[in-house]
Design a protein around this nucleic acid. Structure first.
Lengths: 251, 251
DNA sequence: CCTTGACCTTGACGCTGCGTCAACTTCTAC
DNA sequence: GTAGAAGTTGACGCAGCGTCAAGGTCAAGG
């Protein structure tokens, strides 16, 4: 008992083209192929197709569907991963929407700021190049959209927070604390939480990955623009050591 | 005073490939091209590039950016349209997320419902084919995701609401009301609001479009499955007439 | 038996916004 | 003069099919 490709498409509410596509990528093979090349599908194939279509409607990619439906795949786990992605995407869109709103407001009150924004942009892009190189364009665009979405007050708060963190690091280094000591490790934990609040950091929103923290801490030392925030080269080295220890222990 | 493609890319924080792409689609031409084929950009081009990149970071497509930056384009209007799209997309994702959550819950409590869901799906797809034909796959997928995202209680509520609407139509038709009378027009308004609550309807979430209402009302008459909900062919004709008048007047 | 029309096949381009080779020419500096 | 950096024009790749194109197959009717 089997059906032609058109029958199946109608039954399942999809198209014959999609079925051929699924066949060509090995996601759903016809149960039988006639000597004339016609594809035929049996009930088992239909069940599998229903599962595929359900997962598709929920927004999963075909490769993930394949993994989820494999013998050792776990559909529920795949769905949970997907849910996390959906939430992240939704947050991204929310940030972008806020950025768009503020841009509209700026356009309407301040006139065409889009040109005057230039130099701010240029200054900004000294960092951009590096961020993009190290962590990808998406990361930069995300964090930039996040920044644009903040209000002036929120930006002030953020700057103050960042500055206090820097000052505390400098103070700790100046006080002769040990990088693996309690004070430095507490600062490291604060630093990682602070990082986690920046969208676009790899691993957001679960918190930054170990590699990211390690790479970043090296950058603090290597790059004078960052090092300056932590009291120059020696201060940055202290930050790096403390972060490295923290990352190895906790991440 | 102009810059090479690499200079511009670095200054603006993008890549030479992107600049060439913008050139090839006519979005940003170099201000000058050397006899050797090298591209050079002047300050005006840089300003335009900054605008382009700003809009890109806000998520606009290149074609919309082109329109927004054209002489007769309105950047603020483009941004507002974009904002509406962002919100719609966010809602879509929210619905999809809810659907995913419920599917996870169903998977974990009821075991593998994904197969048993089949027949419900098959029954469902009697309509699917037509909905897809008339209003596109996206519309169907949206409304299906919406339906899956509802709780059992919400579904009961929805069904009750729909049924009451149908009963009220039948009652009005039976009472000999005129399609352009106050009672019928009030029902039509209710009907349109009811439609507007179904995601995936063309025009959602602003309310259904006039064409959609007109087309749908014809379908109520033509298709016995829908006509049944409104008291058969004569009842459906009454609904159609009332809706048509309402649509012409109000939409 | 032949035609018509519905249904099937494989193959290939299109969409979005570039990243990423590839193969070559040109400029710059030593 | 030559290495190396930077420039050029193609062209493929990605996700998931939609959409021709060109042609073979099959059931029904004249």
């Amino acid at each position: 008992m089997d059906w032609s490709i058109q029958d199946v498409a109608r039954l399942a509410g999809t198209t014959s083209r999609a079925l051929r596509h699924y066949g060509s990528i090995g996601l759903l093979e016809p149960s039988r192929v006639g000597s004339n090349g016609y594809r035929y599908y049996d009930a088992a194939a239909l069940v599998r197709l229903q599962r595929i279509l359900l997962l598709r409607q929920l927004g999963l990619g075909l490769d993930e569907i394949a993994r989820a439906l494999a013998d050792d795949g776990d559909p529920a786990a795949a769905l949970r991963r997907h849910l996390a992605r959906l939430d992240a995407e939704r947050e991204r869109l929310a940030r972008q929407a806020r950025a768009v709103e503020r841009t509209i407001a700026a356009l309407e009150t301040g006139g065409p700021l889009m040109a005057e924004d230039m130099f701010d942009g240029f200054d900004h892009t000294q960092y951009r190049e590096e961020v993009v190189q190290r962590w990808g364009k998406q990361a930069y665009a995300d964090s930039d959209a996040w920044w644009r979405g903040l209000s002036d007050e929120q930006r002030r708060d953020w700057k103050a927070l960042s500055q206090r963190l820097g000052e505390d690091w400098i103070a700790a280094a100046g006080a002769g604390e040990a990088p693996d000591g309690e004070a430095a490790q507490a600062l490291a934990a604060r630093h990682v939480r602070w990082l986690g609040g920046i969208p676009g950091t790899p691993g957001y929103p679960d918190g930054p990955s170990k590699e990211y923290v390690l790479g970043l801490s090296e950058m603090y030392v290597a790059d004078p623009r960052f090092a300056r925030n932590y009291g120059g080269e020696t201060g940055a080295a202290f930050v790096r050591d403390a972060l490295r220890i923290y990352a190895e222990r906790e991440l």
